[in-house]
Write a protein that binds this DNA or RNA. Sequence first.
DNA 1: GGCAGTTTGCCATTTCTTCGGCAGTTTTTG
DNA 2: CAAAAACTGCCGAAGAAATGGCAAACTGCC
Lengths: 379, 379
Amino acid sequence: MLLTNRVQLMRPLVAGNLLRRSGLVSIRWPDPSSDHARLSAGWNALPARRPETELLREVAPLASPNPEKIDPLYLFACHTQWELHEEPSAAWELLAAGQSPHPDTRAHARSLLASSRHFDADRPIPEPESAPTEEQSLDTETTMKAPYGLDLNDDCTECTLRKPGFFCGFSKETLHALNLVSHKSVLPARAVLFVEGQAARGLFIICSGKVNLSTTSREGKILILKTAEAGEVLGLSAAISNVGYEATAETATPCQLNFVDRKQILDLLENHKEVGVHVAHCLSRDFQAAYRDIHDLVMTRSSAGKLARLLLSHSADDDESAERRVHSTMTHEEMAQRIGSSRETVTRLLSDLKKKQLIRSEGSLLVIRDRCGLEALAV
Amino acid sequence: MLLTNRVQLMRPLVAGNLLRRSGLVSIRWPDPSSDHARLSAGWNALPARRPETELLREVAPLASPNPEKIDPLYLFACHTQWELHEEPSAAWELLAAGQSPHPDTRAHARSLLASSRHFDADRPIPEPESAPTEEQSLDTETTMKAPYGLDLNDDCTECTLRKPGFFCGFSKETLHALNLVSHKSVLPARAVLFVEGQAARGLFIICSGKVNLSTTSREGKILILKTAEAGEVLGLSAAISNVGYEATAETATPCQLNFVDRKQILDLLENHKEVGVHVAHCLSRDFQAAYRDIHDLVMTRSSAGKLARLLLSHSADDDESAERRVHSTMTHEEMAQRIGSSRETVTRLLSDLKKKQLIRSEGSLLVIRDRCGLEALAV
DNA sequence: GGCAGTTTGCCATTTCTTCGGCAGTTTTTG
DNA sequence: CAAAAACTGCCGAAGAAATGGCAAACTGCC
């Protein structure tokens, strides 16, 4: 089952895809007389069988501007249904709630997701197209190999996406071994690869696309730690030390991914000397980045400094005119999540910057007028 | 030269040791007519030769309760003297200033230290006892092998300090190779192993003792990231990726250390398969810890939560009475530096906790009266 | 064109934290 | 033992940021 959420943003293709796949799993609706079913009025109110459109309507209100907090009992009931009966719609509700704008709801849903036994090593749900388990991979997969307009490379050794510096920049021999144990897949944007705290099943190599790594506080506040790009590897450290994933990974764009099971990674590590060195380098880089993040996030007194740094880091390094640089679209909310602040503060600071003539907005585009001024702010 | 600072805390033995060693380096005082010497009145005011006691008096005032900001030009002059003439007293001033309570002075001094060419790979100053370079290691070293009441193990393969889980838990063969390339040393408390940003010369394995890892903001605010214990390794990631150390390491207790040069580490990594796996595991652990730190430091809204967590993490896990636990001595200032807050806030919060009957102070000891209450605060 | 949902901008209020200062207490040092 | 330094505790003021709410602009979709 695809873990794509934020229904309202999905292309029809994706939604159809997802729901068709959901349909493949045997549906067992809760026995109305069971305790679980009676846990919450909300759960009982669900019809015994819901057409796809109805399901969509039901989930969408979660993202309304004044979001209602979802009854925790309802979420728990969903969790129970999913755990006990593998009811896909229940998991779907949880995933949607995990994206809810309401902090409590989001936090609660995510913690339930993280504790799900379905997210353990033997059931790789979030990585559906090439899941190594039998019952999931032998149905309609073959017809869906290359959606979202991306080419899917079946063979790592002949992969045209690979560039210098990629994690998969191994020798031919090692690459061949990697190819034998890895599972390629394509996912749409907003798909959740894994959730913070969930037991590590393996790692994901990003062949193309971008993936956001984030962490959620108990209050539901989200901090986007980084955006991993093509060539990077996700979940490496968690897979190696066999602990829970340290962050939540969610595709920011359609992605081609390569999944490698934990055990296979450890095998590669044992049997191919270069893998150890390679992994050590990758982890070192990630570690350095994490410390830089700590420094930047904790030590910077003002949000203004952090915002300035964010803007600078997101502005392309093309010194065309050495003065102005455009800036990608990012909502204020997302910027706030990247600097560990609130939406309001970002809005405030941005208008300050505009007043100070440091930036200018051109439609939905942000233009940096005074790079040096920003750099001074970034301390 | 020993990089021990905070003169006022040093035992006589240590101070004498340090200054004797300083005397070994040829002293070349600045030519009064040179530009560097005229940079600052403070520098010119120094006598051409200062007895040890005078040096001590001069450094001590840096830590006065109402610290004076040291003239940046004077610091820069020190830096210049040290860089150009290898004047030890100048480096000494910088190191003392790097511990100054005055934020600006501290920040400035540390950044000068970090940019020192003397901290590059070919001149391992902070690790004096067993420095591989000739001119430093062939004088009085042999008579100073085991100060501070610690036994110094010359041979890793027969080291009695090694315990399961230690970084040096290699096979006999690898351990032998490690032994050949590593340099043992003993350092007093408050010695600086390396400074944030400084080019990585190699790594330090902690045989015994504790080392604080910290990072400093531009404003001079210090954040203590972690206290590394015996068996842990410092600077591993920086050595592997050959970038600057990600934090400043300073011994918290007298320590036995084992230094391994960068190149030797890479050699070991290449030639001993188990090293790669081992390093990968260590880095994974560190990485996980860093992410946990980010989560705890950035996502926890209130300082109260962070303080509660700090207290809990520092209380011994001996559930003798399941209700109260003692807590090590740590100044409010240090607690503040560990949770990224200010001394004032810590003082305030602690008295709050006392009012709420969650903790109690017994002399210089802190007693946790209500573990559960604290845990609730820690979110 | 109209609607729903999202995004932005803005306000007042409140909470939390820091700053600077000062006095009392404890610890270290000579 | 005495002096010096460091640490603790406390106060008021100032500042930054979060909160919650609301309206306007903008978007995509029916």
